[in-house]
């Protein structure tokens, strides 16, 4: 019984419902965001899309950080969804502020698909230099991050790959 943090800019979508709930026996989904994602319309929509036996919560980043530190997510299998690396950084900072010794579970980087000018490094991952800096900052705070889309996929440990990714993104930026 524990939590898994997933960074996915599409938050709740088909893959999450069909491909994550059953294999990992998720019983609660927490959407962690400080921005609009938690307004009434969105919340009704999210509630419509999850099966009845799965609870849905929508909290801001500080509340989620507090709950992680106070071990409130240990009673059931919880999926915490965050929409960007920036918000992940804020969450990590909050957790470390509350308790310096907390070790966060391995974080799943599940999809950063809104590419725009970013470089598509993997099928569902687009990064630019700012994201690389964020990744390095998170690694320095001893956060382990793995890239995979579904729980059965091969897990790529971003901590080991960040230098290669930096080279790829730099080459693209210099073109």
């Amino acid at each position: 019984m524990s939590y898994i943090i997933r960074v996915d800019d599409r938050l709740v979508h088909g893959q999450v419902i069909e491909g994550w709930i059953k294999p990992l026996k998720i019983s609660m989904i927490t959407i962690c965001s400080d921005t609009i994602a938690c307004d009434i319309m969105q919340k009704t929509l999210y509630k419509l899309s999850v099966p009845p036996h799965v609870a849905l919560e929508c909290d801001n980043i500080e509340t989620v950080a507090k709950k992680i530190v106070e071990k409130k997510y240990e009673k059931e299998n919880v999926l915490i969804l965050i929409s960007s690396l920036q918000e992940l950084n804020v969450l990590v900072n909050n957790v470390l502020r509350f308790s310096e010794k907390t070790l966060l579970n391995t974080i799943n980087i599940g999809g950063l698909r809104h590419c725009g000018n970013k470089k598509q490094v993997y099928r569902a991952l687009c990064l630019d230099m700012k994201d690389i800096e964020l990744l390095k900052e998170l690694i320095s705070k001893k956060i382990v991050m793995e890239y995979y889309i579904l729980p059965d996929d091969k897990k790529l440990k971003l901590n080991d790959l960040v230098l290669d990714l930096e080279k790829t993104v730099k080459n693209e930026a210099n073109k």
């Binding site: 088909g14 419902i17 994602a37 969105q42 929509l45 419509l48 899309s49 809104h114």
Partner: peptide, 21 residues
């Protein structure tokens, strides 16, 4: 654009569960 993108995800979840699944 932002509303479009925010709504697309959950609608996909509803559709996947209701129709395909």
């Amino acid at each position: 654009i932002r509303t479009k993108t925010m709504l697309a995800g959950p609608v996909a979840a509803i559709g996947d569960r209701l129709i395909w699944s």
